[in-house]
Simulated assay, not measured.
Amino acid sequence: MTTTATSADATAPGEVLLAVDGLRVAYPGRGLRRRPTEVLHGVDIALRPGETLGLVGESGSGKSTLGRAILGLAPVTAGTVAYRGRDITHAPRAQRRELAREIQVVFQDPYGSLNPAHTIGRILEEPLTAVRAMTSTAAQARIAALLDRVALPAGAVHRLPREFSGGQRQRIAIARALALDPRVIVCDEPVSALDLSTQATILDLLTEIQETTGVAYLFISHDLAVVRRLAHRVAVMYRGDIVETGTGDQITAHPEHPYTRKLLMASPVAHPARQAERRTARAALAEG
């Protein structure tokens, strides 16, 4: 694995919030005598308070599996996930409920993660009353503040998810993730289903939230340009391994691993001639 030292690594203050050490994930094979398929091959990452670590790779690289393992949703076969120094790799259900106060998630498809039969008010109220045991009055005040935080009108509480656009639904998902005041949010491809202008507004919103709350993000994406815009550090994942880490500028200006260079060449550019040059260079790398 090629690792590039960064100023963020050297100067980021305080504790390591989330540490993944030697993590391996394998899924059972299908059929008789099929061996398990290992998806992660000993992954190490660290996330500090108020930091965004961008995890970038193509489909099938293992990046979403890493996010799921951190959340306790993937079968870890070796290694550890530690939160504030406490091993949570195989945390039981009761402990996971407690961890929901500290670690939240925003998924790619907001419509799929929001109960279509519930109003936005009920969706936001559930974690407040179930986990934080708020009274209904306190919960309503908190919901109003959450909607204001993500720039949605107070009247949204009476509406269903289908009545909102994709970008608005993602704002609702972000509001729900913020409801418990977490210290870490796993953002799993949160803008990949949105158009470019909506992507930009959601990225701006996430940046503003981080600046005002100090929340840390593990930001998962296939798009290096998106990751570079938001992340303090970038980790490139390829076939279940972290192959390169560094700041966004380091990764894009001086990529060390061939796969990172392929990701850069896959990023769209406005000029047709430059885009054609990138396709040619990427094909040459593939042949090499």
Rank of each mutant, 00 (worst) to 15 (best):
E98G: 09
E98V: 14
E98L: 15
L99Q: 04
L99A: 00
A100C: 13
R101N: 08
R101M: 05
E102Y: 10
E102W: 04
E102I: 06
E102S: 14
V105E: 01
V105F: 01
V105W: 01
V106F: 02
V106S: 00
V106Q: 00
F107W: 02
Q108L: 11
P110F: 03
P110D: 00
G112M: 09
S113G: 09
S113R: 07
N115L: 10
N115G: 08
N115I: 11
N115S: 14
N115E: 10
T119P: 00
T119C: 08
I120W: 01
R122W: 10
L124R: 01
L124Q: 03
L124E: 02
L124S: 01
E126R: 09
P127G: 03
L128Y: 07
L128K: 04
L128Q: 05
A130M: 14
A130G: 07
A130R: 13
R132C: 09
R132N: 12
R132V: 03
A133V: 07
A133W: 05
T135M: 05
T137M: 09
T137K: 14
A138C: 06
A138D: 14
A138Q: 15
Q140W: 10
A141F: 06
R142G: 01
R142V: 04
A144R: 10
A144D: 12
L146I: 09
L146V: 05
L147I: 07
D148V: 11
V150F: 01
V150L: 05
A151E: 15
L152V: 09
L152I: 10
L152P: 11
P153Y: 01
P153W: 01
P153M: 02
A156T: 08
A156F: 04
V157N: 04
V157T: 15
V157C: 08
H158I: 11
H158C: 06
R159M: 09
P161Q: 14
E163W: 12
F164C: 06
F164H: 07
F164V: 08
G166W: 09
G167L: 10
G167Y: 08
Q168C: 13
R169C: 06
R169Y: 04
R169I: 06
R171T: 10
R171E: 02
I172T: 01
I172D: 01
A173G: 12
I174R: 02
A175V: 13
R176N: 05
L178Y: 05
A179H: 07
L180K: 07
D181T: 15
P182Y: 03
P182I: 06
R183H: 11
R183E: 13
V184N: 01
I185C: 06
V186W: 00
C187R: 00
C187K: 02
D188N: 13
D188F: 10
E189Q: 12
E189C: 13
P190I: 09
P190K: 06
V191S: 04
S192G: 10
S192E: 04
A193M: 15
A193E: 10
L194W: 06
D195R: 12
L196P: 02
L196N: 14
T198L: 15
A200S: 14
T201V: 15
L205W: 06
L205R: 04
L206D: 00
T207I: 08
T207F: 09
T207Q: 14
Q210W: 08
E211T: 14
